[in-house]
């Protein structure tokens, strides 16, 4: 556990000292979501129809934008070698890094989403479902994303490859997340979708750290 907490605290501290990297995905999220009411007609019914998809797609893309930061600087300054060579289990270190990444992106996106949802004429009584789907979905995005970053961090221009690798895996989360929000607006029961999102989260939490560790060892060869 020392490895997890040490790395988690180190990465949170680094994120707080690297303000621009912290703010970039959040600013992206705010800008994209708030452009929709401007670009579309002010008709609240059209906005509401698009709201779940807009919020979820923006959150997904904002997370993708920030993924590289999980391992990029550690790879470049040689810290990653040291982490791989430390005698702590690598999956705990990876888990610490991914948790820190989620706290500085996914969690903040989730906290900001209600305010942005209101600007899309989102009904206030359904905000809790939106927050729940993002709270269950964004950690999965970070976990799956870490595998892709671990594989591509050694490449100079890995950005597009990362998107190609990761997006297909993100699609189920997007579908369940956005459809749950959509159905809740129509007054339907969404427990099924939420359980599925939770199941995907648990699955990625158990498997992704090991896959990421293996990918990191390959990347450093």
């Amino acid at each position: 556990m020392t490895a997890f907490t040490t790395i988690f605290r180190r990465d949170i501290k680094l994120a707080l000292r690297h303000r621009s990297e912290l703010i970039n995905p959040l600013a992206f999220f705010v800008i994209v979501v708030s452009l929709f009411p401007l670009g579309l007609s002010a008709d609240s019914r059209t906005l509401l129809q698009l709201a779940p998809a807009v919020l979820w797609i923006s959150a997904l893309l904002a997370t993708m934008l920030s993924l590289e930061s999980i391992f990029r600087s550690d790879y470049e300054d040689g810290s990653l070698e040291q982490l791989v060579l430390s005698d702590h289990p690598l999956f705990l270190i990876v888990l610490g890094k991914v948790t820190a990444h989620w706290c500085t992106t996914g969690l903040l996106l989730t906290l900001m989403s209600p305010a942005l949802a209101i600007s899309l004429a989102f009904p206030p009584q359904n905000l809790d479902i939106l927050v729940w789907t993002l709270l269950l979905g964004t950690p999965t995005l970070s976990l799956i994303g870490s595998i892709g970053v671990a594989l591509t961090v050694g490449l100079r221009r890995g950005g597009i490859l990362l998107a190609l690798l990761i997006l297909p895996l993100y699609i189920p989360i997007l579908i369940f997340g956005a459809s749950a929000v959509d159905m809740s607006i129509d007054g339907l029961d969404v427990a099924g979708q939420l359980y599925l999102l939770a199941a995907l989260f648990v699955l990625s939490l158990t498997l992704a750290p090991f896959a990421t560790s293996a990918a990191l060892r390959v990347t450093l060869e």
Partner: peptide, 21 residues
């Protein structure tokens, strides 16, 4: 490559390294 974080102080870097070992 030194494996140090530029945004942490010298002490913080060594503390992280020490705790990890």
């Amino acid at each position: 490559r030194d494996g140090l974080k530029a945004e942490l102080t010298a002490l913080e870097n060594l503390q992280v390294n020490a705790r990890m070992s």
